[in-house]
């Protein structure tokens, strides 16, 4: 669905992302992990077309991303940035309906299909009860779910998310990850997410891409990427890796430094 090749981006002469290639096939979830400043968010910006790469290319459904208009991109790709912009005065329901913009074309008002899609997105993110509240009255976690609901309302084939669970409690972390997992399995959604939570990414993603200083240090299934050697090279700390009990995926534990 989404593929990138040889992506490079420099900010004021400093390379932030260098020579990164990835592919995001239908029905798969890719986790992009790496330490602070390793270029994760920049990579996401390049993948959704908000940033233009200095070299390399991004293809959305086998066509260069640059050939699409913003509305055409929005019909295929949803983005949930870390601190998503929401209009505080709009209600939750209005915010999610606004996600239908690209599909409405010249229509002034939403039709039954638009309302149906919005209602589903609200249901999936557990916001149905809150739909008449104003976005400005929501908690950080609720805002994060609202931004996801708005992106899902446009029924995209690809969703990119930046730290979608950073403000969420355990219950809602699982809710979001499992709704993405279900959408991958049932609707063939392709998901790319940036995460700091290695364990959560390891538990739900099909593939992981480990970035370090803007370069791809490793890429593959979680058990091949979440290894003590690779992680200590990327993060510069010692970690222990064992298996988590529910799915047998790798579990990363930080080792405390020696007391001096």
């Amino acid at each position: 669905m989404l593929a990138a090749d040889g992506l490079s981006f420099a900010y004021q002469g400093e390379p932030v992302v260098a020579q990164i290639g990835l592919s995001l096939p239908r029905g798969e979830m890719l986790g992009i992990i790496g330490p602070n400043g390793s270029g994760k968010s920049t990579l996401l910006g390049l993948l959704c077309g908000m940033l233009s790469p200095q070299s390399g290319s991004v293809e959305l459904m086998e066509r260069p991303l640059a050939d699409y208009s913003r509305a055409q991109v929005a019909r295929r790709l949803g983005l949930v940035p870390q601190n998503a912009e929401l209009a505080s005065g709009f209600t939750v329901r209005e915010t999610v309906l606004a996600g239908r913009f690209a599909l409405m074309g010249g229509r002034m008002f939403e039709n039954a299909q638009d309302r149906q899609a919005a209602a589903e997105a609200l249901e999936l993110t557990g916001l149905t009860e809150l739909q008449e509240r104003r976005a400005g009255e929501l908690s950080g976690g609720e805002r994060q779910r609202l931004a996801l609901a708005r992106a899902l309302a446009s029924e995209p084939q690809v969703v990119l998310l930046d730290e979608p669970t950073s403000a969420l409690d355990l219950k809602h972390q699982r809710m979001i990850m499992e709704l993405l997992e279900r959408a991958c399995a049932q609707r063939g959604l392709a998901v790319g997410l940036v995460s700091h939570d290695l364990n959560l990414a390891g538990m739900y993603c099909h593939h992981l891409l480990l970035l370090s200083n803007g370069r791809a240090l490793a890429s593959g299934p979680p058990d091949q990427v979440l290894t003590p050697e690779l992680l200590s090279r990327a993060y510069g700390v010692e970690v222990a890796v064992d298996q988590e009990p529910s799915r047998g995926r790798p579990r990363v534990t930080l080792r405390a430094s020696e007391l001096s």
Binding site: C48, M50, R70, A71, Q72, V73, A74, R75, G78, L79, P81, A84, E85, L86, A87, G89, F90, E94, T95, A98, G99, F101, A102, M104, M108, R150, S154
Partner: peptide, 18 residues
């Protein structure tokens, strides 16, 4: 409709197709 999205912010409006 465009103004509805721009009220959220330029980035949000752009990713949603404005």
């Amino acid at each position: 409709k465009h103004l509805n999205l721009l009220t959220a912010g330029g980035m949000a409006a752009s990713t949603l197709g404005v």
